[in-house]
Design a protein around this nucleic acid. Sequence first.
DNA 1: AGGCGTTTGTGAACGCTTGCACAAACTCAC
DNA 2: GTGAGTTTGTGCAAGCGTTCACAAACGCCT
Lengths: 251, 251
Amino acid sequence: MSQQRNGQAAGVSDGAVFPDLPEATVARLPEYLRALHNLAETGFDTVSSEGLAAAAGVNSAKLRKDLSHLGSYGTRGVGYDVALLIAQIEHVLGLTQRRAVALVGVGNLGHALAGYAGFSSRGFRIAALFDADPGRIGERINGLVVHDIARLPEVVAAEAISIAVIATPAHAAQSVADRLVAAGVTSILNFAPCVLSVPDGVDVRKVDLAIELQILSFHEHRKSALTTLPSPTGDGSMKIRPTLDGEALAT
Amino acid sequence: MSQQRNGQAAGVSDGAVFPDLPEATVARLPEYLRALHNLAETGFDTVSSEGLAAAAGVNSAKLRKDLSHLGSYGTRGVGYDVALLIAQIEHVLGLTQRRAVALVGVGNLGHALAGYAGFSSRGFRIAALFDADPGRIGERINGLVVHDIARLPEVVAAEAISIAVIATPAHAAQSVADRLVAAGVTSILNFAPCVLSVPDGVDVRKVDLAIELQILSFHEHRKSALTTLPSPTGDGSMKIRPTLDGEALAT
DNA sequence: AGGCGTTTGTGAACGCTTGCACAAACTCAC
DNA sequence: GTGAGTTTGTGCAAGCGTTCACAAACGCCT
């Protein structure tokens, strides 16, 4: 608590941008960031790797290795300075500026995303809404007007949008993606259940709610099959219910 | 097309449940399944690993290795029988029965999820809605009544629910998870931005929309830094715009 | 000032995942 | 029936990610 004499960004001055940060690490940094914000609000000034790892739900060794890729921002015998680490991770993730995001598709899901407070509280600003349905164009959602998707190029340019969210039906998603790329968007978060093909240099991440459930379904299936076997794991702490599966194969 | 003389489940009779299927493979099977359904609707009877891989957005070698874990359901020189492969993957994922899902938290996002058609079209049935807000209890959404969360145990038991979706604010999520587990739920899909701690035997998958955007933000950040360097990738096909980043570090 | 307990950063081993490359197996045409 | 062309299934090697275990570094107490 006596060490960080420098304002809020001490050794962060390097403009290097970590071109070789492992993908797995990048995917976990946001989780660490969220845990750190929680700790900061709770009044913590420093936190050990063990404590932060518990708050982020990972192994402490993994956390230390992840953070070591960013440089040495911990103090041996003490832990990590919470505020400094927040600043460092936000810098690496490019969250020092509030990024403008476009949302395409204001249907069932898109409507909810447009009103989701978690975006704005964590570094993003929904800057524009688009839809192709003439019945929805002009509608106001959360203070934003739904634009005709034909206006993508001008609005993307005017608002300096580089990230877009696709929340359209699957059959429209590829066409929307093409138009987004043409307008200059270089990162896409796709909620439509389909594969998008985009040129090199454009990043796509996919969120498919049904796929997540299907993965859980597999594990359920596997677990329920264990009920027919003598408990393989040592302590009988696992709750076993009669097989709900039925497993009817021959129709 | 002359080979599968047996109804719709030929060698699928084995009750074994693939306890050692690699996680990475399990996570891709739903994607293959979706691609296969598309192909079936388009009229394909068979598909090659190359074709299916393209439709699912993966490498063909990876696809073949994934499918080989399920057994040999392809025909050399021909490809895979679409209908047979669909049946096989659905069996492995435990989708032969339509699983009942509970949804807790009927706020902004939960409301949208309750109306999302993708769940019911892909093997799941939203069987019950819950909330803690008295103002929402009793509301009808998509033909379902919102129950008081206190009624979790009875409804979970009555509907044979084993999977639940948490769409509550973060501060309520852990408490909800505890009550779900106590009621007998063994798989949870968590949309709340927080880490859930659950006992062994319970699976949790997490979907955090802000985290996805932050990962994209990192790549945007990295890409925009490249504008200051001579194009490192061979062909200059990458669209480069003047740096939008600003990269202001010292406040 | 010096020793002690604590915590970070990291080398090294391990396991999982991916991608290549090719033999085995199948269809089709003649 | 035979040969040519096609496609699957898989051994193998390389790369990536995770975990262990420990030396180096730090604060604190005496």
